[in-house]
C-alpha cells in the first residue's frame, strides 16, 4: 500500500499546485501509516530529488519526449500502470486544468471513486470522507469514497506547502507510452505573467473603472505586489480585458491569499469565484455595494482618487 501523487509539469518544471498536492499526499500517507510516492511524466529540468522536501520518498519518472504534452488518455493509462505496480491505494492530483482532465479518466480505469475540488485532508476515522467545495464555493460537501482505491483532486491554494531537507529517490519506470491521438499544433503562453490560477495575490477590476484605458491602476498595483490580474464578467464581455481574466461562477474560481477588488459590485455570481480567498479588500464608492459584506478590509471611496495613493504607499513599503 502507498499514496501516489501525480506531479504536473510545464516546460520541465513541476507546477506549484502539484507541490501542494505533494505536501497533502505526504500528510495523507502519514495518516494512513504508509509511504508517499510520486509520478512525473515527460522531460524534467527540475532536480527531482528535491521533491523529497515535500515529504515524498520515491519519484517514478517516465522520461519520454512524447509525454511533454498532456494527453489525458495516454497519461491516465501510464499513471494507472504505475499505481498498480506500487499498490497505490490513494492517488492525489492537483485539481488544476490538467488534473481535471486526467483524474476522471483514471477513476474509470481503476474503478476508483474520485473527489475533485477537495479542500481538506480526508477523515479516515470511519471510512474515507473528503471535504470538497460545492455550489461554487458557497458550501462544502463531505463525500465518502466507497471503493478500495481512492482518488482526490486537491483545489489549488487550499493546502499549505511544508518542507524539510529530505531527498527523494528518483526511479525511472520502464514502460512504453501509447501514441497520442491529440496533436498539439501550438501553445501560446502569456510570458512574464503569473498564471491567475496559481497566484497568491490577485488584483481585479470591474465596470467601476469605466474603461480599459483606466486599467493602469490594476496592472501597476499587480506588478508591485507580484500579483496576477483578474476582472468581472462584464469587463471581459466588453473586451476591456482578455477572457481568461474573468473570475466568478461562470469564469475561473480562485482562492488567493489576497483578492483586491476595485470597482466591482460583488454580485453573487462574482463572489462565487472569489469567496475562498483568504483576505478580500474592496474599493468601491457605493457603501451599499454587496461586496463589502464579503470583504475583510475596504474603502468606501472613488477608485480614481484612492488608488494612486495606495500605489504610492505600496511603493514606499517595497522601497521602490
Amino acid at each position: 500500500m502507498s499514496v501516489l501523487i501525480f506531479l504536473d509539469q510545464s516546460e520541465g518544471q513541476i507546477k506549484k499546485s502539484s507541490l501542494e498536492a505533494a505536501s497533502y499526499g505526504a500528510k495523507v500517507a502519514q495518516q494512513l501509516g504508509t509511504s508517499a510516492q510520486a509520478i512525473v511524466l515527460g522531460n524534467i529540468t527540475d532536480d527531482l530529488a528535491t521533491i523529497g522536501n515535500y515529504g515524498i520518498g520515491k519519484v517514478h519518472t517516465i522520461n519520454n519526449d512524447a509525454l511533454n504534452n498532456m494527453d489525458a488518455q495516454v497519461y491516465a493509462k501510464l499513471i494507472a500502470e504505475v499505481a498498480t505496480s506500487i499498490g497505490a491505494k490513494v492517488i492525489i492530483f492537483s485539481n488544476n486544468f490538467n488534473g481535471k482532465a486526467i483524474a476522471p479518466r483514471l477513476s474509470v480505469r481503476l474503478k476508483a471513486g474520485l473527489v475533485s475540488g477537495a479542500v481538506a485532508l480526508p477523515d479516515t476515522t470511519n471510512g474515507f470522507t473528503v471535504k470538497k467545495n460545492v455550489f461554487s464555493g458557497k458550501a462544502f460537501a463531505n463525500v465518502t469514497i466507497n471503493t478500495d482505491i481512492k482518488i482526490i483532486a486537491l483545489n489549488p491554494n487550499s493546502f499549505s506547502i511544508t518542507t524539510t531537507d529530505a531527498k527523494a529517490e528518483v526511479l525511472p519506470f520502464a514502460t512504453t507510452a501509447d501514441a497520442s491521438k491529440v496533436q498539439v499544433i501550438s501553445t501560446d503562453k502569456v510570458v512574464g505573467e503569473i498564471p491567475l490560477s496559481e497566484a497568491e495575490i490577485v488584483v481585479s477590476g470591474g465596470r467601476g473603472l469605466k474603461g480599459p484605458e483606466n486599467w493602469a491602476m490594476v496592472t501597476d498595483l499587480a506588478k508591485l505586489l507580484g500579483a496576477a490580474t483578474a476582472c468581472s464578467r462584464p469587463v471581459a464581455d466588453s473586451d476591456w480585458r482578455p477572457h481568461h481574466e474573468h473570475v466568478g461562477q461562470t469564469g475561473l474560481a480562485i482562492a488567493p491569499n489576497l483578492y483586491f477588488a476595485i470597482g466591482i459590485s460583488g454580485a453573487i455570481q462574482h463572489l462565487a469565484g472569489v469567496n475562498r480567498s483568504k483576505v478580500i479588500v474592496v474599493i468601491n464608492k457605493d457603501p451599499e455595494a454587496p461586496f463589502f459584506k464579503a470583504a475583510d478590509y475596504g474603502i468606501v471611496g472613488d477608485a480614481f482618487e484612492v488608488m494612486p495613493k495606495i500605489i504610492d504607499a505600496v511603493k514606499k513599503l517595497k522601497g521602490v
Binding site: I185, S186, D188, E193, E198
Partner: peptide
C-alpha cells in the same frame, strides 16, 4: 492551460 492556451488537432 495554466497561463495560456494550447491548440490541438
Amino acid at each position: 492551460i495554466e497561463g495560456g492556451e494550447e491548440t490541438d488537432k
